[in-house]
């Protein structure tokens, strides 16, 4: 059983669980699933200054801090107690491409050759981590939600989705990233 849990889980198991988060949060207390809102609540809580967009009762959304705190803890537990000892299996074409950028460490979820404090202060590291993070925060709020709120919660409630984030991802991964990776 434990051996089975240690294997990477298939997409349909993960998809079902993620989907069930929607009714779980609704039934537990009328909460609408969405994670990027936390970034805004953090602004509202720490540095609202005089911006109207951040002047609301963020304490009413405290539940979401507990939710993401749980996500962090869950990831910690999964890594500590049932992580797979094998490296991540990825498409061979990708392996070849990444090799060209000096990335060949598949032991962790994220490539150590980009995501480490030593590489943070390289130009590539700064652009990818600091720049990328900024775009995620700015864009998800401008769009009114990220993957969870926009696609999963939004589509579940049959709201017109915006799939432009997929377009953004395709442009970045295929057209821009090859240049950034060589920085």
């Amino acid at each position: 059983m434990i051996e089975l849990l240690k294997q990477p889980w298939p997409w349909y198991v993960a998809g079902a669980f993620v989907g069930l988060t929607v009714p779980a949060l609704l039934i537990l207390g009328n909460k609408h699933f969405g994670i990027s809102a936390n970034l805004r609540h953090a602004c509202a809580a720490c540095l609202p200054t005089n911006i109207k967009f951040f002047k609301y009762n963020w304490k009413k959304e405290m539940w979401n801090f507990f939710f993401v705190g749980g996500i962090l803890l869950g990831a910690f537990l999964a890594t500590q107690f049932f992580s797979s000892p094998d490296p991540i299996q990825v498409n061979q074409t990708l392996v070849e491409e990444l090799k060209g950028y000096g990335i060949n460490d598949y032991s962790k979820m994220i490539p150590a050759q980009i995501f480490s404090f030593e590489n943070l202060f390289s130009i590539r590291g700064l652009v990818l981590l600091v720049g990328g993070g900024f775009l995620v925060g700015f864009g998800s709020r401008y769009a009114g939600g990220c993957t969870s709120g926009h696609s999963i919660m939004g589509l579940s409630d049959l709201q017109k989705p915006s799939l432009s984030f997929m377009v953004g991802g395709f442009i970045m991964a295929n057209l821009l990233l090859p240049f950034i990776m060589k920085l």
Binding site: L128, F138, G139, F165, G168, G169, L176, L177
Partner: peptide, 12 residues
């Protein structure tokens, strides 16, 4: 916003 978010998603 979605477009900007997508760019960041593929980077990070």
């Amino acid at each position: 916003g979605g477009l900007i978010f997508g760019l960041g998603w593929a980077m990070t």
